[in-house]
Amino acid sequence: MNGLHDMGGMHGFGKVVPETDEPAFHADWEGRVLGLVRSLLFTRAWNIDIFRHDQERLPPQVYLKVSYYHRWLLSITQSALTYGLVERDELAAGHALHPAKPVERTMKLADAHVAYIRGPFARTPQREARFEPGDRVRTRNINPVGHTRLPRYARDKEGLVEAIRGCHVYPDSKAAGKGDDPQWLYTVAFSAREVWGEHADPTLTVSIDAFEPYLEAV
């Protein structure tokens, strides 16, 4: 979706302000939210792509106003409601009021290590890769209302396939509840002038990791 989350190339947000000696968390609740996210995604009641899409679907005023972990909280609260893990009267009461709906699995202490590192997203290819390094490609001009990982600034742009990154879960499908639909993934590099026009930094190249359905042969 063409949401506020898709920030590449926007103006007006000001300077980047690094924080000296930044702590891991700025408040205890942030760590709890991280733990909740990892535990809830482990249940497979929903998935990381839905988790991201629920953040993108926050009203833009809210998306900008709240902090990162607060966005996570709003996302998991929404999905917990959508997938029936909690109900609104429970959120109001602050306690469980209804029987739990079964989920595929829950995270026990022995599983906690699963939450520490990145999960596997590679999948068995369903077909041969259409492109190879060195191919010129053009990104499609798509504007789906659902989730996509093709940023606006990189749509309808000509670039160079630099690498095949394997075959992965396709977030556009997964976030729509349509399964893994594995797709080949490529690093595609664009000159800044192709993306931003003739006044762009001539020394700059920007790349994205693009799923095959985003690409057309040139």
């Binding site: 609740w29 909280l73 959120l91 306690h95 829950t106």
Partner: peptide, 17 residues
């Protein structure tokens, strides 16, 4: 408060520990 409520509910229902 919202985080605490959500964690409490999810814990009581056995989804998180």
């Amino acid at each position: 408060l919202r985080v605490r409520a959500l964690e409490t509910i999810l814990t009581e229902k056995g989804y998180v520990d």
